Amino acid sequence: MNLGQFLVLQFIAHVLADFFFQTDRLAIQKNELGFRSPFLKWHILIVFLFSWGLSFQTRFVYGALIIALTHFMIDGSKPWISKNRIIGRYSFFIDQALHVLMLVSVTVAYAYYAELDAWVNIPIGIKGLIGVFAYLLCLKPANIFIKEMFRAYQISVPGTDDLPNAGKLIGVLERVLVLTFILLKQFEAVGFLIAAKSILRYKNDDTIKTEYVLIGTMLSFGIAVLLGLLIGFV
């Protein structure tokens, strides 16, 4: 195992623990109550287990413990960040930036001072692991990222009767398709998908909703395109 594989595996562990293994309800509770949240300790245990397990190294138990403890401090302090009048709307991005900073710091420091000696052979190369990471990001994390972008810029659509989960599913499908087409170098198919999405129309007097969908679509396609380009550069 090299440093690149080790680092990407830790990113995958973070995405799984922070997005897939907690429900929206529990995440909201944790973000509102901070250290007082009964779910926080279980969330930190999940973070630790994924970080240690996906390191495939027994000695990384201490590194995983540091990542979990700093995760605890960051998540526990999030209510104070969210209530700040200046930076409160950016609390999600600050939270994730701090998590990534600590994850990278601990991982690189461990790789520098200790030998990367996995107890199992990792059959997937760095490009394959980044591919797995990219597809995971295209699912639930991308939906949350887009929602938080709307929140940060105070964009909302009042009085809509659309099913919220339908929009999430559409976003997931289009990102997965765009990423797959880019990896297969089928750029014409990406253009076709964008053209097909443009068929969606609203009434002329529904400008706010049209702009909302346009912004969401651009963010969604942009995430998939950037991830596809990232994999292509590896």
Score class of each variant (00 low, 15 high):
7 L>C: 05
7 L>N: 03
7 L>F: 06
12 I>A: 12
12 I>R: 10
13 A>H: 02
15 V>S: 06
15 V>W: 08
17 A>Q: 03
18 D>H: 04
21 F>P: 00
21 F>H: 14
27 A>P: 00
28 I>H: 12
28 I>A: 14
34 G>L: 06
35 F>Y: 15
35 F>A: 02
40 L>G: 03
41 K>I: 14
43 H>L: 10
43 H>R: 15
43 H>N: 13
46 I>Q: 10
47 V>C: 07
48 F>M: 05
49 L>Q: 07
50 F>R: 06
50 F>I: 09
53 G>M: 12
55 S>F: 00
56 F>P: 06
57 Q>D: 02
58 T>P: 05
60 F>H: 00
68 A>H: 00
70 T>Q: 07
71 H>G: 07
72 F>A: 02
74 I>V: 10
77 S>D: 05
78 K>W: 04
80 W>D: 13
80 W>N: 12
82 S>I: 15
82 S>W: 10
82 S>L: 14
86 I>E: 05
88 G>C: 03
94 I>K: 02
94 I>F: 15
97 A>I: 04
98 L>A: 14
99 H>C: 13
101 L>G: 03
102 M>T: 12
105 S>Y: 08
106 V>F: 00
107 T>A: 15
108 V>A: 12
110 Y>Q: 03
111 A>C: 02
115 E>A: 09
116 L>V: 05
120 V>H: 10
121 N>K: 10
123 P>M: 11
128 G>P: 04
129 L>Y: 00
133 F>L: 15
133 F>V: 00
140 K>T: 11
140 K>M: 08
140 K>G: 08
141 P>R: 08
141 P>L: 05
142 A>K: 00
145 F>W: 12
146 I>A: 04
148 E>Q: 13
150 F>C: 08
152 A>N: 06
152 A>H: 03
155 I>R: 00
156 S>I: 11
159 G>W: 08
162 D>S: 14
162 D>A: 15
164 P>H: 04
165 N>P: 05
167 G>A: 07
169 L>C: 12
169 L>R: 09
169 L>Y: 09
171 G>K: 00
174 E>G: 08
176 V>G: 01
177 L>T: 11
177 L>I: 13
180 T>N: 03
180 T>Y: 08
185 K>P: 01
185 K>T: 10
188 E>S: 11
189 A>H: 03
189 A>Q: 01
189 A>M: 09
193 L>F: 11
195 A>P: 04
196 A>P: 04
196 A>M: 13
197 K>H: 12
199 I>W: 12
201 R>Q: 14
202 Y>R: 14
203 K>T: 07
204 N>I: 09
207 T>C: 08
216 G>H: 01
217 T>A: 14
217 T>N: 09
217 T>C: 09
220 S>C: 11
224 A>C: 07
226 L>T: 13
226 L>N: 10
226 L>M: 10
226 L>K: 06
232 G>R: 07
234 V>N: 06
